[in-house]
């Protein structure tokens, strides 16, 4: 058994009196994708932000290779703990509109003093290559790119710091169907090549099934089910996961009719 890369133990977060995370336990192994599924308000984004160090943790422990990083902001994280990066949902607002792609990609490296500005610039081409963007993209602005391309830029930015973990918060939700499939394949390819681990937050079970090794299901701040991908996304044990699975329509009228009847027979949620 490989030692976990990230281990969340009894993580609790309160926003005022609202209990957003309730005793969340979660592990991510090196090079693994853990899918995190849930509906809006379930706390899936909150746990992602807590791991990134940009969201609050009220109690509990988040350890990264044994080092407690709960509540430590990114710039104070030392060593490998600094190698946790993020790709956000909305590729239109996650890139600063007034910076060129080159500025966006060199900034993390320069800010962390990992390389000089010139060395960082030299790496831009490699980064763009990795996400299959043309080299001449470096001197353009985000607005000149489509949603899928911007998300590639965001992925390249995350890769610039040689991450061990990337927290992906709904990274393909804003993309068209065909673009979504290609970006997901890029994520998988990068993982196989670099051994990066993903915490893949999504509301879409099909997306999570495509990319994950293990899947956790969240509801009202709690993880209700956590297990192997195939088991959770095809034969779930928890009634809530079953409900989620049957609610998602499949692209086949015949099978969808069966699924719909099964969903309706579950009745209204208690």
């Amino acid at each position: 058994m490989t030692a976990p890369l990230i281990e969340c133990e009894k993580v609790n977060t309160f926003f005022g009196t609202f209990h957003a995370l309730k005793d969340v336990n979660l592990t991510i192994r090196p090079g693994e994708t853990v899918g995190l599924v849930g509906e809006s308000g379930s706390g899936k984004t909150t746990i992602g932000r807590a791991i990134l160090g940009i969201g609050p943790v009220t109690s509990g422990r988040i350890s990264f290779e044994g080092q407690d990083i709960a509540g430590v902001v990114p710039r104070n994280r030392k060593g490998d703990a600094a190698r946790i990066q993020a790709v956000f949902q909305d590729p239109y607002t996650s890139l600063n509109p007034s910076m060129t792609i080159e500025d966006i990609l060199t900034e993390p490296v320069v800010a962390r003093r990992l390389a000089s500005k010139d060395d960082a610039r030299a790496q831009v081409r490699t980064l763009l290559d990795q996400v299959a963007l043309p080299a001449d993209a470096a001197h353009r602005f985000p607005r000149e790119f489509s949603g899928g391309q911007r998300q590639r830029v965001a992925i390249a930015r995350a890769l610039a710091l040689h991450p061990k973990l990337i927290v992906c918060d709904e990274p393909v939700s804003a993309l068209d169907l065909s673009t979504q499939a290609r970006v997901l394949d890029l994520f998988i390819e990068l993982q196989e090549r670099t051994g990066v681990a993903y915490l893949f937050v999504s509301h879409d079970l099909a997306v999570v099934r495509h990319i994950s090794h293990r899947v956790a299901v969240m509801r009202s701040g709690e993880i209700v089910e956590f297990g192997e991908c195939d088991q959770v996304t095809a034969h779930p044990e928890h009634p809530y996961t079953q409900r989620l699975l049957l609610a998602a329509p499949v692209a086949d009228p015949v099978r969808q009719q069966e699924r719909r009847e099964a969903f309706l027979s579950l009745g209204k949620e208690a």
Binding site: L52, P74, Q85, F88, E107, A154
Partner: peptide, 8 residues
């Protein structure tokens, strides 16, 4: 947020 995650 992205800039904060990058450690700026």
């Amino acid at each position: 947020d992205a800039a904060r995650v990058s450690g700026l």
